[in-house]
């Protein structure tokens, strides 16, 4: 028990005064000294070591009154009150005030159920405000995230450019895009076309026509397995870099991506490097006059399965 303010102080021989102040140690959070007002003879600072016993209204010292008179006089200027300094957590350890300072507890607040009810009713009312907004705000923010796919055919050139079989030829084309509220702009893209021999065709199609489906699962185009023209998306399926048709020391003429050195053969199959899947095929149409058209598609890079994003 901590000594209470205003309690009487008894020495071994007689009563000497009362506790006028209490000094606490900011580090240990304990009472370090008592200030005893010596019945009109000034104040003395008494260390707690001299205290023998503490009760509600009495502090018993083990020293004599003359020893206490000889102790250090109390100098107020050496100390500050807790109103003048911030010592974290100290207030929790103070129990020196006799009695309590009280204010009336309002009659209406005594009912715990009432408090709980209105607290919860506040949350429910908040639900009426917040919940209706969730869906519209989500859709608002998600508007451009899943833009519908454009399945328009783009003319990219003439097959006359492709003279050699099983060799990659780059076709560059322009595509008009309109992003949100910006004016229509043109971007340049490229694809790699290969005039395929039957062996390469077999490697690519493996006996099945290649179907391209739209978002709802309907077929928009089928690349027939006997049409000898292949179109590969100009972006490497590893991380989207533009790749080239180059002569490799060991593997011969291949598609080579300069970013991370993925290597593909003329059928798009991965020969070497970190590519997770073969080159992405695009729908291709060649007219009787030799005009080549493709549907511009882009696929998610870095994944084993093919997911169309544009």
């Amino acid at each position: 028990m901590q000594p209470q303010l205003k309690s009487k102080v008894h020495c071994s021989d007689r009563e000497v005064g009362e506790v006028s102040r209490v000094i606490m140690d900011p580090l240990s959070h304990e009472v370090s000294h008592l200030v005893v007002s010596m019945n009109g003879a000034g104040e003395r600072q008494v260390p707690m070591g001299a205290v023998q016993a503490v009760t509600d209204d009495l502090v018993q010292l083990r020293t004599s009154s003359s020893e206490v008179m000889g102790m250090q006089p109390f100098n107020r200027e050496d100390y500050v009150t807790l109103h003048e300094v911030e010592i974290p957590g100290l207030e929790k350890h103070i129990h020196v005030t006799p009695g309590e300072v009280l204010v009336p507890f309002p009659e209406l607040e005594r009912n715990v159920k009432r408090r709980a009810f209105f607290a919860n009713l506040t949350y429910v009312t908040g639900l009426f405000i917040g919940l209706p907004l969730v869906y519209p705000v989500m859709k608002f923010l998600m508007k451009p995230m899943y833009a519908p796919l454009d399945n328009g055919w783009l003319k990219i050139g003439h097959i006359g450019k492709m003279k050699v079989e099983d060799a990659g030829i780059q076709f560059q084309y322009k595509r008009k895009i309109k992003e949100a509220y910006l004016h229509e702009a043109e971007i340049e893209k490229n694809v790699w076309l290969v005039k395929a021999s039957p062996a390469v065709l077999e490697k690519v199609y493996q006996g099945k026509d290649m179907e391209f489906l739209n978002a709802s699962g309907e077929a928009i185009w089928t690349n027939k397995k006997d049409v000898p023209f292949l179109a590969f998306s100009g972006k490497c399926p590893h991380l989207g870099c533009a790749y080239k048709w180059r002569k490799h020391k060991v593997l011969g003429q291949v598609f080579l991506c300069p970013c991370h050195l993925s290597i593909y053969d003329a059928s798009g199959r991965v020969l070497d490097g970190p590519a997770p899947r073969p080159l992405d095929m695009l729908p291709i149409q060649v007219s009787a006059a030799g005009e080549v058209q493709i549907i511009d598609m882009e696929f998610k890079a870095g994944t084993k399965s093919q997911t169309r994003i544009v």
């Binding site: 309002p106 009659e107 209406l108 607040e109 408090r115 209105f118 607290a119 506040t122 009312t125 908040g126």
Partner: peptide
């Protein structure tokens, strides 16, 4: 004095209804 109550929960609840 008879009608005194605390800011929480009653006044807060009235505030929330006003907001709604």
């Amino acid at each position: 004095k008879a009608k005194t109550d605390y800011f929480f929960p009653r006044q807060i609840w009235k505030d929330v209804v006003g907001m709604a």
